[in-house]
Design a protein around this nucleic acid. Structure first.
Length: 268
DNA sequence: CCCAACTCCTGGGCGC
DNA sequence: TGCGCCCAGGAGTTGG
C-alpha cells in the first residue's frame, strides 16, 4: 500500500516527465472517484508535489490535480495512447509528445480530485493532515501534544494522518517496533513521543532510500519494485523472531488494522 | 468536536 | 486441478 516513501518515490520520478507538459485529452472510468481526471484537459502542468500520501499536480488557472493511490494505485507512462486492453486503467492523460500517463488501480481504492491550488476543503483528511515528518515545526513537544489530544490507540492515531502526515500500516508498525512502543497504548509520555517521532523519521527515510516497499502490488512509475520489504522488522513478520530480542512477534487486529509487534520489547 | 461502524473493491490465498 | 469463500486495507461517509 503506497505510503509516504512510495508516493515520494513516484513523485520524484514523474516530476521531470510532467513539468511543462500539456494535457491534450484526458479520460476516466465512470466512477466519481476518477471522473475529475477529465477536467484537466487542456491544462499545462506546472509542478508535482506531495503532501502525506497525496500527489499534488499543479495545473494552470490556479488549479491542482490531487491523486491518492489508495491500495493498488499505480502511475504508468507509455508511448502513444492509453492501453484499451487493460481493464484496470481508471484514468489517463494524453500528453504532448505522443505519451500517455495512466492511473491504474485494480481495487479502485484510489481517487482523484481537481481543486483550487492549496484549497483542500473538499478533501478533509488532506486539509487536516499533520506536518510532514521533516517539518522543523514538528517538535517532540508538538507531536506529544497531538498524541495527547486523543485517547485512541497510538497506532490508530498514527494512521489518522493527524500527528504526522504519510504514515500507513507498514511504516506505523515499523516505527512502533523501532521505538519499542506498544501499538495499543492510548497515551505516551514526552520521552516516548520523542522516540516515536525519531523512529517515524528513520523508517520513512529508509523507505525512501530503498525506493519503497513492494509486497505485492506496489510499483514505482518506471515499473520497478522497491527494496524496503527486505528491511522490514515487524510488518509481515508475525510468528518470526524479533530482530532485537528473539522473542516471537505477535499479530492482532487493532481498530480493524493488522498489527505486528514484539510482546517482549514493546511491552507497555 | 470526537469517535465507531460501515463502505468501497477485487486479486490472491486457502480449504476442500 | 478447480471451485468458491473471504480477507486486506486508506480514507470517505454516516450517525451517535
Amino acid at each position: 500500500m503506497p505510503e509516504l516513501p512510495e508516493v515520494e518515490t513516484i513523485r520524484r520520478q514523474i516530476r521531470p516527465r510532467l513539468m511543462a507538459r500539456r494535457v491534450l485529452e484526458a479520460g476516466s472510468h465512470p466512477s466519481p472517484k476518477f471522473t475529475p481526471a477529465r477536467a484537466t484537459t487542456g491544462a499545462t502542468i506546472s509542478g508535482v508535489g506531495r503532501r502525506g500520501k497525496y500527489l499534488l499536480i499543479g495545473l494552470d488557472h490556479q488549479r491542482e490535480l490531487v491523486v491518492h493511490l489508495g491500495m493498488t494505485g499505480r502511475i504508468v507512462f507509455r508511448q502513444g495512447s492509453a492501453d484499451d486492453s487493460d481493464p484496470h486503467v481508471r484514468a489517463w492523460w494524453q500528453l504532448d509528445g505522443n505519451e500517455t500517463m495512466e492511473f491504474i488501480d485494480a481495487r479502485r481504492f484510489g481517487r482523484l480530485r481537481v481543486v483550487p491550488t492549496g484549497d483542500y476543503s473538499a478533501i478533509p483528511t488532506l486539509a487536516r493532515a499533520g506536518p510532514e515528518p521533516w517539518d522543523s515545526a514538528l517538535t517532540p513537544q508538538l507531536f506529544w501534544q497531538s498524541l495527547r489530544s486523543s485517547k485512541r490507540a497510538i497506532k490508530t492515531q498514527l494512521l489518522s494522518q493527524r500527528p504526522v502526515a504519510g504514515v500507513g500500516n507498514i511504516y506505523a508498525d515499523e516505527a512502533l517496533w523501532l521505538s519499542e512502543i506498544n501499538p495499543a497504548r492510548r497515551s505516551i509520555g514526552l520521552e516516548r513521543a520523542g522516540r516515536l517521532l525519531d523512529a517515524v523519521r528513520t523508517v520513512m527515510a529508509q523507505g525512501i532510500d530503498l525506493g519503497g516497499t513492494t509486497l505485492r502490488d506496489y510499483r514505482n512509475a518506471e515499473g520497478g519494485s522497491g527494496e524496503n520489504q527486505h528491511a522490514l522488522a515487524a510488518y509481515g513478520r508475525a510468528g518470526l523472531p524479533c530482530l532485537r530480542c528473539g522473542d516471537t512477534l505477535r499479530s492482532k487486529v487493532i481498530d480493524a488494522r493488522t498489527t505486528v509487534w514484539c510482546v517482549a520489547c514493546q511491552r507497555n
